[in-house]
């Protein structure tokens, strides 16, 4: 492997990492913190992508269009939470069937309203060239966006009063309520954040994908579920580790053999990881931290 090829693998890794992390964060917040298995997660991403693309077609500059995508998905998420999802708290498996139904409805409604596809928005920034190779700059920068998203989440959930109340609600609803936390509102806000993150994913990938179709969201679903489980219950620790691990496996096997081998290797690695670490990466980190403290 020469230097240029090393750059190739690095960029491929960054792209995989970004994809896995961004596909996962929204789901991880909703599943990890609220216990809702959201099979309509892909369609939340779809809402973000369509809102971004359609408002860019209306002449809005891309960053503003992306903001519209995030806001639209957030509002959409809140409406859905108030009407349907809030009746499903504590009913992990029912939430799965209901959100599967929602996903069927959303895909087909999208098709009825906007047709079989909408025109693509072009990808900004062009490419980086090195030797005989080149790589899309936007795709590399997505890795930066993924890390930035995780940082913002970290600050939100650990450094703000809201974050502390939200985590208290999730850990022990009764106690939180007796301490004066409006838990109903906390659930709604957490779901809104999860929706906003899915919307952000849709917004960021809208210009990086061939023209959006009603099936846009399904491309994200598999990676998202696998990474959530490999990551484990703590979103902030688990998601980046899962993204890094699975992205590395996928990039390496793809580079060495083919994309097919890369995909299969990633899925098999996920199965093995779940078997070895039933609580995921964040469970591992937690137990390491505990034993470290004990030895001190």
């Amino acid at each position: 492997m020469n230097g240029y090829e090393l750059l190739n693998v690095t960029f491929q890794f960054l792209e995989s990492f970004a994809f896995i992390v961004l596909a996962t964060v929204g789901l991880a917040v909703i599943f990890g913190m609220m216990g809702i298995i959201n099979l309509a997660h892909g369609e939340f991403i779809l809402v973000g992508a369509y809102a971004t693309t359609l408002s860019a077609h209306q002449g809005l500059p891309l960053p503003v269009a992306m903001l519209v995508g995030v806001v639209a998905t957030t509002i959409f998420g809140i409406v859905l939470e108030r009407t349907i999802i809030r009746r499903l708290y504590g009913r992990l498996l029912d939430s799965m069937v209901a959100t599967f139904g929602i996903s069927l409805v959303l895909v087909q409604l999208t098709r009825i309203l906007f047709g079989n596809s909408i025109d693509q928005v072009s990808t900004p920034f062009g490419a980086i060239s090195y030797g005989s190779y080149s790589y899309s700059l936007y795709r590399v920068l997505l890795a930066g966006a993924a890390i930035a998203t995780l940082l913002v989440l970290y600050i939100l959930f650990t450094r703000t009063a809201f974050g502390i109340r939200a985590r208290a609600t999730i850990q022990d609803e009764e106690t939180a309520r007796s301490m004066g936390v409006d838990t109903d509102r906390m659930y709604m806000s957490t779901f809104a954040i999860g929706s906003a993150l899915a919307g952000l994913t849709g917004a960021l990938y809208a210009p990086a994908r061939a023209s959006p179709t009603p099936e846009f969201g399904s491309e994200f679903l598999v990676d998202a579920f696998v990474a959530v489980v490999v990551g484990g219950p703590s979103v902030l620790v688990g998601t980046p580790l899962a993204g890094g691990f699975l992205g590395l496996i996928e990039a390496f096997f793809t580079f060495q053999w083919t994309q097919f081998i890369g995909t299969v290797a990633m899925l098999v690695a996920a199965i093995v990881m779940i078997r070895l670490l039933p609580d995921g990466f964040s469970g591992l980190v937690e137990s390491v931290r505990t034993s470290w403290r004990e030895s001190e």
């Binding site: 349907i84 599967f100 139904g101 996903s103 069927l104 409805v105 087909q108 409604l109």
Partner: peptide, 8 residues
């Protein structure tokens, strides 16, 4: 759409 709504 109908099938999905029915499930929900």
């Amino acid at each position: 759409v109908i099938v999905g709504s029915l499930l929900v």
